[in-house]
């Protein structure tokens, strides 16, 4: 079911993205909006296949992330893609969403009953807004694809970590998000119109949908990490490391621009180098999450695994996705 959901999300997003790019071949704005729409439908398809569509009205943090935060952020990115509003208002809208994101995600929970200092919420909002605004702006002018790729990886790692910490549904939801983002980006890179690179007047620069998709990935990552940290058992250090990955993918590019010599610029701007740098925190997070799973929940999974062939599927230390298959086989056995 998980693999089907990820592939389904990716296929729907890629197909719709390709159709959108094909229809709007000479109109970058339209293609950019189409890329965001493709991502949205990819996510919907993936969640449907995963049987994890949010409940309406939203009652949990995960519901509010999927029903409120992500759609509002995507609407803003669609506005940006269609050039409907000026840069100032775009920045202001992103700032408002960043400021309200944490209170919306934590609404009605114990976190907003005096447990969370306002300064923490403000710091999270500032971090979210700065990375969203800064990275998206940079991608729009540079056409850099590395951040979007790293964000897909970070989403997968966030999902695995949340699931291995004990919140299976919260973790699994990350996978269709990553699948849809990857699918929409594939379609985007396969062809379609491009934005002019700022200042150069060059045509054939940034793929039209890339800034919007990068923003969508960053918002999805932030929302998922916040709900995973506050409602699941994702640790603070793991949450910070996951959020750091996209920044590490873009930081060398910024430092490289400050260097006078072109060799240093080339090295720091190298996609391979930046991906490797961003992978470091993600690999650390996965290793720690797996070790934590083995010592705590792995034993529990071992305890609850039913006898018979399914027991071999779920041994102590097995990954949580095997647990879901075992549950299916157990319930099938129970029905028979």
């Amino acid at each position: 079911m998980v693999v089907r959901a990820v592939l389904g999300a990716g296929a729907v997003a890629a197909a719709l993205g390709a159709v959108g790019a094909g229809i709007s071949r000479r109109q970058p704005a339209l293609a950019a909006v189409a890329a965001i729409v493709a991502f949205v439908w990819g996510v919907v398809a993936g969640l449907f296949l995963l049987r994890a569509l949010p409940s309406l009205p939203p009652t949990t943090g995960l519901d509010r992330f999927l029903v409120i935060l992500l759609p509002v952020a995507l609407a803003i990115e669609a506005e940006a893609a269609a050039n409907w509003i000026s840069g100032f208002w775009l920045t202001a809208e992103r700032g408002c969403v960043a400021l309200l994101a944490v209170p919306v995600l934590l609404h009605g929970s114990v976190w907003l009953e005096g447990e969370t200092p306002a300064v923490v919420i403000l710091a999270a909002a500032l971090f979210f807004w700065a990375s969203w605004e800064g990275i998206t702006g940079d991608v729009r002018s540079s056409g850099d694809r590395v951040v979007a790729l790293v964000t897909v990886g970070a989403l997968v790692v966030a999902g695995l970590s949340i699931a291995m910490a004990g919140w299976l549904k919260g973790g699994l939801v990350a996978l269709p998000l990553a699948g849809a983002l990857a699918g929409a980006m594939l379609a985007e890179w396969g062809g379609g119109p491009t934005w002019r690179r700022s200042g150069s007047g060059e045509v054939g620069g940034t793929p039209a949908g890339l800034p919007g998709l990068t923003a969508a990935g960053l918002v999805a990552l932030f929302g998922l990490v916040v709900v995973g940290r506050c409602f699941g058992r994702l640790g603070s250090a793991a949450a910070l490391l996951i959020l750091l990955a996209p920044l590490l993918a873009v930081l060398p590019l910024g430092i490289g621009r400050l260097l006078p010599d072109s060799a240093g610029q080339r090295l720091l701007g190298s996609a391979r180098y930046r991906i490797l740098l961003a992978l470091v925190p993600l690999v650390i997070v996965v290793i720690v999450a797996k070790a934590d799973f083995d010592t705590r929940l792995g034993r529990l999974v071992g305890e609850v695994s039913p006898p018979g062939p399914a027991a071999a599927e779920v041994s102590p230390g097995a990954d949580p996705f095997k647990l879901s298959r075992t549950r299916g086989s157990a319930s099938r056995r129970a029905r028979s």
Partner: peptide
């Protein structure tokens, strides 16, 4: 069972941070 209790507190079960 401390590990199971932690698991039960998470959103797959009681979601105690949201529904205390």
């Amino acid at each position: 069972n401390a590990a199971r209790d932690e698991h039960l507190r998470q959103p797959d079960y009681f979601d105690t941070k949201q529904f205390p």
